[in-house]
Design a protein around this nucleic acid. Structure first.
Length: 340
DNA sequence: AAGTTGGCCAACCGCCTCTGT
DNA sequence: CACAGAGGCGGTTGGCCAACT
């Protein structure tokens, strides 16, 4: 038995809204507000619509100061950055773009941004294959995986969100701490043991995404990140997300769409990274076949922290964000995470 | 000119979370 | 604490329209 429907489906009109319906709904809400009860609202004003439908119509179309279409480059970047960081939390992303609705952003992502990034990725793959004079067999699985990067969660696999408060330290959520260590060691990271509960200092260097020389020379140094220190200590804490997100939306930790394209298009980070990724991908995934697919597409030639951190961080941030989300009233969740 | 295809977007659906009792 | 109802969210669908054959 399913749950009872929110309204009498038989007596409810579906489909596009007429101008009359719009006018009724708009004028009522402007005069009286929603009354805190969407379900009862359509009856009050004589609309044969589901309350949810009214809410959606108001939020996505009738509400004042709604912008439709014409996304700017800056908005593109914000959307991409946030998508890379938190995934398809459209409402959270929308909260950072005044006048935009989650539905709009979702549609925009699905119809344009996703393709934009994927198109760039494919072009670069072709160019690379041509340039190397090597025709790699691009089997189906690898292509599928590459597309998944853009179609689903960007660079990292979904890890079940731990049922933790970000400020309550509990047992580690990852099962295989050795793998975590291995991963971090392979990345060449240096992790201090002291936990300093301040904002993340990780910077993603601009313009260094494809610099392999720099990669080899640069010392990777992670300074005082709550998440990373905790991992280094095998104590996964999900804190510091406030600071992270606040930096994120302020642009210190952000990706341009070009950078994201770069992230999904560069090639061989695999040897250095995948050995430690069993805990994320599972043993089976770390096969030659996948190394040529997911590995090459996920994150690229990155071995300096600026690049690999985008690999390491997202799951953690996403996880911590889950924690925050669970802890906070939904309305406030990201507002508190963003601008101070 | 007619038919087909693909893109876009508004709206719906069903699940999850929150809140009040 | 448990439950029910409402709100909120993300995924998906379906219709419209323009471009293409």
């Amino acid at each position: 038995m399913g749950r009872a429907p929110c309204c009498d489906k038989a007596n409810v009109k579906k489909g596009p809204w007429s101008p009359e319906e719009d006018a009724k709904l708009k004028s009522y809400i402007e005069q009286h507000g929603t009354g805190g009860n969407w379900i009862a609202l359509p009856q009050k004003i004589g609309l044969k619509r589901c309350g949810k439908s009214c809410r959606l119509r108001w939020l996505n179309y009738l509400r004042p100061n709604i912008k439709h279409g014409g996304f700017s480059e800056e908005e593109d970047n914000i959307i991409c950055s946030l998508y890379v960081s938190i995934g398809s939390r459209w409402s959270v992303i929308a909260a950072q773009l005044p006048g935009r609705t989650d539905n709009d952003i979702k549609n925009y992502w699905n119809t344009r941004l996703k393709k934009k990034l994927l198109g760039k990725h494919r072009k670069e793959l072709q160019a690379r294959n041509k340039g190397n004079g090597v025709v790699k067999q691009e089997n189906n699985s690898s292509l599928l995986l590459q597309e998944n990067i853009v179609q689903q969660q960007p660079c990292w696999p979904q890890i079940p969100a731990p049922p933790l408060s970000p400020y309550i330290s509990q047992n580690p959520s990852f099962n295989d701490q050795d793998s975590i260590r291995k991963l971090l060691i392979k990345l060449g990271g240096r992790f201090s043991d002291d936990y300093q509960p301040i904002g993340l200092n990780v910077q993603f260097p601009q313009g260094s995404l494809s610099s392999t020389q720099q990669i080899e020379e640069e010392q990777v140094h992670v300074s005082s990140s709550g998440c990373m220190n905790s991992i280094g200590n095998s104590q996964v804490q999900f804190g510091e997300s406030n600071e992270y997100c606040s930096e994120l939306v302020q642009g210190e930790v952000s990706f341009t769409s070009a950078a994201i394209g770069e992230m999904v298009s560069t090639n061989d980070y695999s040897e250095r990274l995948l050995g430690g990724l069993e805990f994320l991908y599972g043993e089976e995934m770390i096969s030659d076949k996948i190394m040529g697919g997911c590995a090459s597409s996920c994150c690229g030639q990155s071995t300096n922290w600026g690049e690999t951190s985008s690999l390491i961080y997202p799951p953690l941030v996403a996880s911590s964000f889950e924690g925050v989300r669970q802890e906070m009233p939904r309305e406030n969740a990201f507002q508190e995470l963003s601008y101070p």
